[in-house]
Design a protein around this nucleic acid. Sequence first.
DNA 1: CGCGATTTGTGCGCATCTTCACAAGCGCCT
DNA 2: AGGCGCTTGTGAAGATGCGCACAAATCGCG
Lengths: 259, 259
Amino acid sequence: MSQHHPGPESGTPARAAAVPDFPDLPEATVARLPEYLRALHHLAESGHDTVSSEGLANAAGVNSAKLRKDLSHLGSYGTRGVGYDVGLLIDQIEFVLGLTQRRAVALVGVGNLGHALAGYAGFANRGFRISALFDADPGRVGEHIGDLVVQHIDDLPELVEAEGIAIAVIATPASAAQSVADRLVAAGVTSILNFAPCVLSVPEGVDVRKVDLAIELQILSFHEHRKAALTALPTRGAAGLTALRGGLSTPGPGEAVGT
Amino acid sequence: MSQHHPGPESGTPARAAAVPDFPDLPEATVARLPEYLRALHHLAESGHDTVSSEGLANAAGVNSAKLRKDLSHLGSYGTRGVGYDVGLLIDQIEFVLGLTQRRAVALVGVGNLGHALAGYAGFANRGFRISALFDADPGRVGEHIGDLVVQHIDDLPELVEAEGIAIAVIATPASAAQSVADRLVAAGVTSILNFAPCVLSVPEGVDVRKVDLAIELQILSFHEHRKAALTALPTRGAAGLTALRGGLSTPGPGEAVGT
DNA sequence: CGCGATTTGTGCGCATCTTCACAAGCGCCT
DNA sequence: AGGCGCTTGTGAAGATGCGCACAAATCGCG
């Protein structure tokens, strides 16, 4: 995974326009690159050297035209008539995402969810290293989780500095989240992943992404409600119900609905 | 969600827009309603009876015009010159989201993450009840978590039927996720929240939402990379760096960077 | 009873995102 | 060498979403 991106100038011919490599990608594209990356690693492990846009698009669950346009923003790394070089594309995407070196991440809040996140192998496998755990509860400080020890949140500044942490995860109750965010920012953290169900207010220049598990379920609930209304009401809707409940025998060509 | 059909006229009356209670909300609106709902409950607990679009928009972290447009899709539940009735709005949103009755949810995969999700209070507080836990590992079957007992996944069909489960959460390793999804669909589940880092293929009519924790971090990593490039390069960029790292003393009026 | 202050609901232009469709490029085969 | 089939990269059209700005509606007050 820690493959090196091609040398600054050597190797491939000069990047079109890529001055210091900052293509200013559309947000929608950025959000999909990690999915492509995961699919590419999977392909690489299966022994594929090249892949067509159609093949990669399938593996990533998107439309092939969209995938090509996304990749075109990174530069021209495909070969017409052939496809994309899997290894090269992995390197390029990892470079753009800033994953050429493993990033240190702090995790604040070692409760129910925090414990699970601290032990989640998916982070370690995909470019990150949980470098420090924090909690405000003195009863939890000192606890060992994996090969880390829970620190008191007052020690945040020193550890952020020492470990070179720029990204933090908040897994505290909502009531504590804003205060924690303030302290993280004060300590120098510039990106926050927030699992607490609340809105965070942070200074300009700090990025916040939010994951709210209940919200995801509520969105699904809406669609359940809608499906129920559609199959119950329309007189000609009987076919709809049959299709819904009966379609299970053909799990093949369905569509996964993402993000 | 599940595939819009571009062919408007033929086939089903797809454009029939308004089923009595079904406003055909834009997806973007649906995704925000839960956030409004959370903010409204918070306001209600603080004793507010009414709230202006500006106030609610602040609490939910969105633009007030956007909020008004979102709510207008539900109908006219505001009073000009006054604002929105908090209680009424809560009822309306909960109805549209299908939360008027607590929904039963199945959780498959009682590993690291699954344990945390099973114990997550946020589900219970916001319209859901985890009604059954499943795992494929016989070593885990029978384990007590909260007041539930882990069932073997072979018992899925009976319990889905008995508990009236329409929504399921997948918290298994990626390698098992597709197979689990197939079995869920076969058992009658029509909405899936997938925590496994892989693309699920499901029949039409089944909704899938995906939460990939590593992807969220990778998106943040991209922005970190970009910020680093921007502050390192421009000669006059010293100011930018100062602003970034030094802005901590004024955590007040900042903006959360979303979506 | 009418007026001004306030706030909703929405029309409209702009931006972003998606999808189609096709020319240009590449490798292979004859 | 030349033609042929395959795949990329992209222009353009369409869809969706966003936010401004303002008319319409309501309340409270003199």
